[in-house]
Design a protein around this nucleic acid. Structure first.
Lengths: 208, 208
DNA sequence: CCCATAACCATATGCTCATATGGTGAAAAC
DNA sequence: GTTTTCACCATATGAGCATATGGTTATGGG
């Protein structure tokens, strides 16, 4: 066997370039040639790691979403260790979806660009729906945990609360995406915090 | 002068075909040739009414948004005549943005497809931001009116309430767009109604 | 009756792009 | 040291498309 290369690493390298291209120029200015130039690969070499452009784009999309989900998980673990109120974790987790700094703005622009393609791409549509379900189920779990520990009133409908927080966050993200100033970011975070506080008004018994 | 034709009518005819194409196949399957075929025009004739494809698309977008806004206006006028509670008008107005029936689903798919292009098209981005501002300002006015007539508590922040209702609606629209079943529609409308009820809990004094 | 002109058409042109093709080089296995 | 095979490359190929071009038709004004 000849020279051996970490395929996954190369694919990630390409995907990162695609993410940057989408962030700065939008999805339909992404071409295989431009991507190759951005990573410093030849067109043929990009083809070597991604047989089709579609695969390249899908991979990039999955990766961007996964990076956000990973951060949310990390957040959750840290919170468990430090015994933070669930409410705070939920706020921070949802804030990962808001375009409030360059990193999150990039992720938002990419997901938004792909969101527009769900109209004609069933695979993207499915992926998007599934991510949504995942987020809502995580939120619902948070609410149920909140009930157990005393942060959430017993009569709260966890499905409904999850739906509301998720929708509010997505709406805020869209709004910030087109109105990207510091005041708007502040307002969005305030509103988000207020609504989460509303759903988690109590105090966790276990930490007293 | 030769045969005279209602230009605006032709442009609308083309735009309607574009809307249908986007709804069913997505924005990047729209070509001038396919559009022409859909209206029963020649390519050249479409060019006669829209010198460039971009103009054709922008016009279609504007038209779809305008149709929704017109419906909302009509709703407002009818409500004033019939002295309906503001809360009900707000719910119905916001529901115009939810993909809960074929007409609204079509509008939603079109706006979503264009939304994805705001990433690289500043003109679309501006248009989208402006529409958002308009919606929020209408909502803020509704809240202020609600205060005057007694439906809304005096200490409500109308800007914040408007932002919340707008974001919630956009989030719900996205969610329904990817989960288009009757149960989800019901849940979305229920949640929307509940949140509006929350902002407009009182009774209008003037109708007593 | 005539001609200017809007409406409309078929097809040409030229660009961009994804993907195909036919390579080279180098290193590991034997 | 030869062979195999992976990594990588330059360029060819051909499809799809927006737009340009050079028409024809028909109608209302003179």
């Amino acid at each position: 066997m000849p020279k051996v290369v970490d395929h996954q690493a190369r694919r990630v390298q390409v995907a990162d370039a695609v993410q940057e291209l989408i962030t700065e120029q939008g999805l339909d200015r992404v071409t295989v040639a431009r991507t190759a130039a951005a990573v410093g690969f030849s067109v043929g070499n990009v083809q070597h790691y991604f047989p089709t452009k579609d695969e390249m784009l899908l991979f990039t999309h999955e990766r961007v979403v996964q990076k956000i989900l990973d951060r949310v998980s990390t957040l959750g673990e840290r919170a468990t260790r430090q015994q933070l109120p669930i409410r705070d974790v939920v706020v921070e987790g949802l804030a990962e979806w808001l375009p409030v700094d360059p990193r999150r703005r990039s992720a938002h622009r990419v997901t938004l660009a792909f969101l527009g393609r769900t109209v004609d791409n069933p695979r993207l549509a499915r992926s998007h729906a599934e991510t949504g379900r995942l987020i809502r189920s995580m939120l619902a779990t948070a609410v149920r945990n909140g009930k157990e520990c005393g942060e959430v009133p017993q009569d709260t409908d966890h499905g409904l609360a999850a739906l509301e927080l998720h929708c509010l966050t997505e709406g805020l993200a869209l709004q910030l995406g087109s109105e990207p100033d510091a005041t708007a970011s502040r307002a969005a975070l305030d509103l988000l915090t207020a609504r989460v506080q509303n759903a988690f008004p109590g105090r966790c018994r276990q930490y007293e």
